[in-house]
């Protein structure tokens, strides 16, 4: 049976983890950097990878878990292929980040912090990205999109969606309303 995209994401390869560990040679103090690399590669921290890390560094598994659960950048649950991160820093908050989040929740059909069942989309909030003058900001694999309005969110959604998906039929976002998309942002 051919592996589906989902299985491929979740099963870490021993050789990949070893490669990541070989780059970092500082023992216990490289734990964060190792986890960052794994998170980067798999978009989350697979259970098996954490066990491998614990055995090889070596540090107790409990310590690996305590680090993995402490920092916001790590996720123990699989994340979607396309991730929308909405900044909820002060400047973005004052300028209406909540509206942007509401819109994305409607379009994606998931709540903030969730991943769609088909592992296509994740919606998250992040702390200030340091681009406050452009708030509200949304980050995707396409980079930063600033001064977001509802119509810009819709456009961004279509752009990200057109990048295609691994399981093509599943995970289509809710229909984007054409009328809203043509609406100019309020002055």
């Amino acid at each position: 049976m051919a592996t589906t995209g989902q299985e491929r994401i979740i099963q870490p390869r021993v050789s990949d983890i070893r490669k990541i560990l070989d780059k970092q040679s500082n023992g216990a103090s490289s734990l964060l950097a190792v986890l960052e690399d794994i998170q980067h590669q798999y978009r989350f921290l697979p259970r098996d990878a954490l066990i491998m890390v614990s055995e090889r560094i070596p540090v107790p598994l409990s310590r690996v878990y305590s680090v993995a659960t402490f920092y916001n950048a790590f996720s123990l649950k699989p994340r979607g292929r396309h991730c929308f991160q909405v900044c909820t820093g002060t400047a973005c908050h004052v300028r209406g980040a909540t509206l942007v989040i509401n819109r994305l929740e409607t379009l994606l059909g998931i709540e903030t912090g969730e991943t769609s069942d088909d592992l296509e989309y994740t919606l998250e909030t992040v702390n200030c990205l340091g681009a406050c003058a452009l708030g509200p900001i949304v980050v995707t694999e396409q980079g930063y999109d600033g001064m977001m309005t509802i119509s810009k969110v819709d456009k961004l959604m279509r752009r990200v969606h057109s990048l295609g998906s691994e399981n093509a039929d599943a995970g289509k976002p809710a229909q984007v309303d054409a009328a809203a998309t043509d609406t100019a942002p309020p002055a």
Binding site: T88, G89, T90, A91, H93, N127, C128, G130, A131, C132
Partner: peptide
């Protein structure tokens, strides 16, 4: 580590 949510002096 500029953590203040709404500040970007250090980044800049």
């Amino acid at each position: 580590d500029e953590g203040d949510p709404g500040a970007f002096m250090d980044r800049s």
